[in-house]
């Protein structure tokens, strides 16, 4: 069974971490993944850096620019991840924009993902309709789960449509914004979390965007099945005052 599905079946709030491959140092990819797993993280999103990340705020943009400057490429990422499944068991998802994947060749990319042990893909600028018309068969033949996003502006009808099309989890964007942390969720955001929870979708939801501390993590996971931390972890990597374990503890300690 796909590791994402398996993990979602466990009765546990998922803590998922995003980081940009090739940041801060080009060769940090595998050591970051390993230390995240050792610290108790449930799932990892590996960011494939892109020159023009439309949906990202300044923190992740800057990390992508730096990663590209460091020399990160699609091929290099697959090389770095070649032996990752010898030591890492948690689900691994690649998050990237469509153009680099399109240039690599969508089928070739999916094939490499399968060989490497990648479980799913999040491609924010590949819309549901294009995925279904052109790429779903390819993704599925390589055992990859494609993750779709919903936002506070997504209509109920479209949420249902996305739920129907989803095989893993729904990436629930917490606010109308690009990535990047705020310290608190507003009443409107909590109402949106509740609305989606009350829809009793078949697909579990994991909240992303704006999860920056234990409070927002707990709030998000009181409605959804898990939460994704991105920019806050990137900021941590920039400064790295503590160990990865200590950063993670900030979110999961009781």
């Amino acid at each position: 069974m796909n590791r994402i599905k398996k993990r979602l079946q466990e009765n546990k709030k998922i803590l998922s971490i995003y980081f940009t491959a090739g940041f801060p140092q080009l060769d940090d990819t595998t050591s970051i993944i390993k230390s995240l797993e050792n610290s108790g993280v449930d799932m990892i999103e590996i960011g494939l850096p892109f020159s023009d990340p439309l949906a990202d705020g300044p923190t992740i943009q800057a990390s992508s620019t730096q990663a590209l400057k460091n020399g990160m490429t699609t091929d290099l990422l697959f090389t770095q991840l070649k032996s990752i499944r010898e030591s890492v068991n948690i689900p691994l998802v690649i998050m990237g924009y469509f153009n680099p994947i399109f240039q690599y060749g969508v089928e070739e990319f999916c094939k490499k993902c399968q060989e490497t042990g990648i479980d799913g893909l999040i491609i924010p600028d590949l819309p549901l309709e294009v995925y279904q018309d052109e790429y779903q068969t390819i993704f599925e033949s390589y055992g990859l789960i494609n993750i779709f996003l919903i936002t506070p502006q997504t209509s109920t009808a479209r949420i249902k449509q996305i739920d129907e099309a989803s095989k893993g989890f729904i990436y629930m964007v917490s606010s109308a914004s690009v990535t990047g942390g705020k310290n608190d969720f507003s009443e409107e955001q909590l109402a949106y979390f509740k609305k989606v929870k009350d829809m009793n979708l078949k697909t579990p939801q994991i909240v992303g965007f704006g999860i920056s501390n234990k409070k927002t993590f707990n709030q998000a996971t009181s409605y959804a099945h898990g939460a994704i931390i991105g920019s806050a972890f990137i900021k941590f990597l920039e400064n790295k005052k503590d160990s990865v374990g200590e950063f993670i503890l900030n979110f999961i300690k009781i």
Binding site: F50, L54, Q103
Partner: peptide
């Protein structure tokens, strides 16, 4: 390639960076 939401001709690196 894809730029600003449109599939079109696009100047890019081999790796799909614009």
């Amino acid at each position: 390639g894809i730029i600003h939401g449109s599939k079109t001709l696009l100047m890019q690196s081999k790796d799909g960076q614009i």
